[in-house]
């Protein structure tokens, strides 16, 4: 059987995505590999305590670097940069690496050719071993760029690890939102699990990420968390799932012991066991 990859997403944060990913790992009936693709807030390691097996630099796109000795302060680079990433201050051009997209327009126009495109470290990725299987995770530098590329990288490594270790499934903890990192996390995955909550924002965000999955050809299913916090909200999620052809795999109540487990950096697997059974049945039937 080919290795399958499931990405756990939520659209909005705070729905319990990471706790559910960790508990799915702990309750897995198959050999798995864990992949934390939420590179901006990589929290899976807090619950899984991986034994480090190596860390590696992540080089994103090249960014512009100015040789200030030769810069004449003419401002041509500032005029041409469409991302507001290069500005002349005190007679010299300076690059704000957070916003430099690495397009090289500035380097092309600089009359004295004092701008070079240079490799820029944007983060770190890690390999580790947990009680429940190998783990690949990463951290984007605060204020960093190119999170989509880093997401692709950890997924690729997780796949290689799965193939060499014979694991049947990769569980990927996805990033929030619907932009580049989320697109990079769902594209090509065998399924997306959308973890949502019974609020109006939960429903709104679930529909946006489901739309994204549809556009990128990834089949999606829903897990409703903290379902008993609003019966009306839960009914609306059920309705939205029906209308949009999204299977609703599980409705999990708000369990205070889950919060307590997470507070002690422990996987809430005991607390969630019965609720996650139907999810594993679904994943195994894929």
């Amino acid at each position: 059987m080919k290795t399958k990859e499931v990405t756990i997403v939520s659209g909005k944060g705070g729905t319990g995505k990471t706790s559910i990913t960790a508990a799915l790992a702990a309750l897995s009936p198959l050999g798995i590999v864990l992949c934390d693709a939420d590179v901006d807030a990589p929290d899976l390691e807090i619950l899984l305590h991986p034994e480090p097996e190596g860390d590696f630099p992540f080089m994103g796109m090249q960014t512009a670097g100015v040789d200030t000795d030769r810069c004449t302060g003419c401002g041509k680079c500032e005029d041409v940069c469409r991302f507001g990433a290069i500005k002349v201050t005190g007679g010299k051009a300076r690059v704000d690496k957070t916003f430099c997209e690495g397009c090289s327009a500035c380097a092309l126009v600089c009359p004295v050719k004092c701008i070079a495109m240079e490799d820029t470290r944007q983060g770190t990725w890690f390999r580790g071993m947990t009680e429940h299987g190998p783990m690949v995770h990463a951290r984007l530098n605060p204020g960093g760029e190119n999170s989509g590329m880093l997401v692709q990288l950890v997924r690729k490594v997780a796949k290689e690890v799965a193939e060499s270790s014979g694991a049947k499934m990769i569980l990927t903890d996805g990033p929030p939102g619907i932009a580049c990192p989320a697109i990079s996390a769902i594209t090509g995955a065998d399924a997306a699990l959308i973890v949502t909550e019974p609020t109006m924002s939960g429903r709104h965000d679930m529909l946006r990420i489901a739309d994204l999955c549809r556009r990128f050809g990834t089949s999606a299913a829903v897990v409703l968390n903290k379902a008993d916090l609003s019966s009306e909200g839960s009914r609306k999620i059920e309705e939205a799932c029906r209308e949009n052809g999204l299977p609703l795999l599980a409705s999990i109540p708000f369990i205070l012991d889950v919060v307590h487990a997470v507070s002690q950096a422990r996987i809430p697997s005991k607390e969630l066991a019965t609720h996650l059974e139907p999810i594993w049945r679904y994943l195994q039937g894929m």
Partner: peptide
């Protein structure tokens, strides 16, 4: 603001 600490938040 958007969540996280990458460029959208900084922007």
């Amino acid at each position: 603001c958007p969540p996280g600490t990458s460029c959208p938040m900084v922007a």
